[in-house]
Design a protein around this nucleic acid. Structure first.
Length: 584
RNA sequence: GCCCCCGUAGCUCAGUGGAUAGAGCAACGGUUUCCUAAACCGCAGGUCGCAGGUUCGAGUCCUGCCGGGGGCGCCA
């Protein structure tokens, strides 16, 4: 796999400027390409260069001497106020304030805050959310939806062409039973119930009937056959059922504030017409084998519990297709019709082996050429305080809408208590931003592959790594401008002098790198960590450096820092799909 | 049995092969005639699950164990 880089090096992050310069010099010194100077943030200075240690060994010289050579090259002279060799051969860098001022000016002058558009935009297909028709959306869908949505926003911000794919479960055996239940209830009754979001009730009733009513079972099975054979009346009913569900999904999406619309729907059913062709192509490629009556492909490297090769079953012995067939058809569709260069599957971790097998078979068949990457963006479970899968008191999975409503309710109570001056409308709007933001941020702010513990008090706290804390920092800055009676959009002359200003400037300039790091690993939590550190850096600055009551030039310069901080917080939160209120 | 993921402070979590492993909660002690105290500062708190190995250098890479979770043929 050789894809062009998804993110471009920042032209405004001083660490990256250093890395770019030293990489060339060190490569020439070593006589080979691509030497990484290993420039990192440092506890001992603004940044440290570690590359001399590794390269000195390769070149057979003393690390400290090589570090001295780097200094002597003069390459860092115009960037750094101070450069010193430390320890076994580290290079500690302190950037010059006027360099930071210049870079800040460049950043403040652009909407993009230093984030470069990709020079080679990719077509990125992101598969996420994927609820099931006639089934409730629960916390399991929360993660896929929220993580996928953040990734969509991040890739789009770098100029990539993003295609959202909501692979809803709208096909399969249960639909015979669901359609029969729809008929039994009468469409109006069913529509009323489903319209109110009682999807679980509908599904469970149908399931219960199926369990102990033989006649219903027979009708259901017949109905599946009718559905699959394209019977027009059955399809009308099926369409109704799907539409009722997608209307409901859209309500949840609207509540959550994600980008998905009906245009992004690409359910299981869409791939049905393609599956026979998929089987045919596998067969012609000579990959198909028969095993216990089923048609299978054996991708190398997978074994079952007996140590035997593990097949990917693409056609059951009954002749029916399954999700492997569907997922393979899906790969073909995304590569050949949509022109995908990168496909992200935002799906729970348990699907890992299945997806690996699908990707492996697709590569064997030539459907995934080397310039197309398929990535499983896996995530862990949402746990309750008992550290087990989050469940409601009755033991059912928690309905997503109820969770979101409770979040807004809790945020509303906090806002009412802490800022009663806001108008009723504004309070409601702010409560929504805080409540939904808190839920999303809690989901996004830890490494996605791990499970996380769902805790109302923690996610809604105004302290710590939470959405409300970041939103508060942003609102506070907006408040400064109101108090100062200053326009935020005015260009200001930066004049970093104090340590707190210097450190804040450095953090602000690291934003593009934070976005790039989050994007290349598909890990929104890296952006969260950055934003939290930025907010902390800002409050520290704000404690030490008076803004509104400072003298003219200093006041202007500090207002400039405040403004870029607010812009960066808002932009970063926006990439996560979280709103930043101007007051709260 | 085989495979995958996780294991870092009392709790929740960061940590790109680099220096004395960092935050936030909670605890303790401070800071409000002062721009939003919804905040800030300080103080504590660690056998990075265990044992080997690679490396000038390992929380990070490799191997083997231990503990937790998940997956392993015709559901999606």
């Amino acid at each position: 796999m050789s894809s062009p880089p998804l993110a471009v090096a920042s032209l405004t992050d001083p660490l990256e400027l250093v890395a770019a310069r030293l990489s060339g010099w060190l490569s020439a010194r070593a006589g080979r390409d691509g030497v990484d100077p290993v420039v990192r943030p440092s506890d001992h200075a603004d940044a440290q260069v570690n590359g001399a240690l590794g390269l000195a060994k390769e070149l057979g010289c003393a690390p400290r001497e090589l570090a001295q050579e780097i200094i002597a090259s003069g390459l860092l002279d115009d960037l750094c106020a101070e450069v010193e060799v430390a320890g076994p051969g580290f290079l500690n860098l302190t950037f010059a304030n006027d360099v930071l001022n210049g870079l800040l000016t460049a950043v403040a002058g652009s909407e993009r805050l230093g984030v470069e558009q990709s020079a080679s935009p990719q077509t990125v297909v992101i598969d996420y959310s994927a609820p099931n028709v006639a089934k409730e959306m629960h916390v399991g869908h929360l993660r896929s939806t929220v993580i996928g949505d953040a990734l969509v926003r991040m890739y789009e911000s770098l100029g990539h062409r993003v295609i959202r794919e909501n692979h809803i479960g709208d096909w399969g055996r249960p639909f015979g039973m669901l359609i029969e239940h729809l008929l039994d209830l009468g469409e109006d009754v069913a529509a009323a119930g489903l319209g109110q979001g009682d999807l679980d009730g509908f599904y469970k009733q149908a399931n219960a009937k199926f369990a102990d009513d033989e006649e219903f079972q027979r009708r259901s099975r017949d109905r599946v056959v009718l559905l699959q054979s394209g019977d027009p009346d059955t399809h009308v009913l099926w369409n109704r059922l799907v539409a009722m569900s997608t209307d409901y999904f859209n309500e949840v999406y609207s509540k959550l504030g994600v980008l998905l619309t009906n245009d992004d729907l690409m359910g299981e059913s869409q791939y049905q017409p393609l599956m026979a062709g998929t089987i045919e192509r596998l067969s012609q490629a000579g990959l198909m084998q028969e095993s216990d009556g089923a048609s299978v492909v054996f991708p190398p490297g997978f074994t079952n519990r007996d140590g035997d090769p593990l097949p990917l079953i693409v056609q059951a012995k009954t002749g029916g297709f399954n999700y492997a067939t569907s997922d393979l058809s899906c790969v073909i569709d995304r590569v050949e019709r949509l022109g995908a260069n990168l496909m992200l599957y935002v799906i729970g971790a348990p699907q890992q082996q299945h997806l690996e097998m699908v990707f492996a078979v697709a590569r064997m068949a030539g459907w995934l050429p080397d310039n197309v990457a398929a990535v499983h963006v896996a995530f862990g479970n949402v746990l309750g305080e008992d550290r087990k899968m989050l469940r409601s008191r009755s033991g059912d999975s928690v309905k997503l809408v109820e969770l979101l409503d409770e979040a807004v309710e809790r945020a509303s109570a906090a806002v009412n208590e802490k800022n009663p001056d806001l108008s009723t409308d504004e309070r409601a709007a702010v409560a929504r931003m805080i409540g939904i933001g808190a839920v999303k941020y809690a989901d996004l702010s830890t490494d996605r592959v791990r499970d996380y513990v769902f805790d109302w008090n923690r996610m809604l706290a105004f302290d710590g790594n939470t959405a409300p804390y970041l939103q508060y920092a942003h609102a506070r800055i907006c408040s400064i401008f109101r108090r100062a009676e200053e326009d935020r959009s005015v260009d200001r002359r930066f004049a970093v002098t104090e340590t707190a200003e210097h450190d804040l400037a450095l953090k602000l300039l690291a934003y593009p790198s934070a976005v790039a790091d989050a994007l290349t690993s598909n890990s929104p939590h890296k952006l969260c960590t950055y934003l939290f550190e930025l907010a902390q850096q800002f409050t520290s600055f704000y404690e030490h450096c008076p803004v509104v009551r400072a003298e003219d030039a200093i006041r202007e310069a500090r207002l400039g820092l405040c403004n870029v901080t607010a812009q960066t917080l808002a932009a970063g939160l926006a990439l996560l799909g979280i709103d930043a209120p101007e007051r709260m």
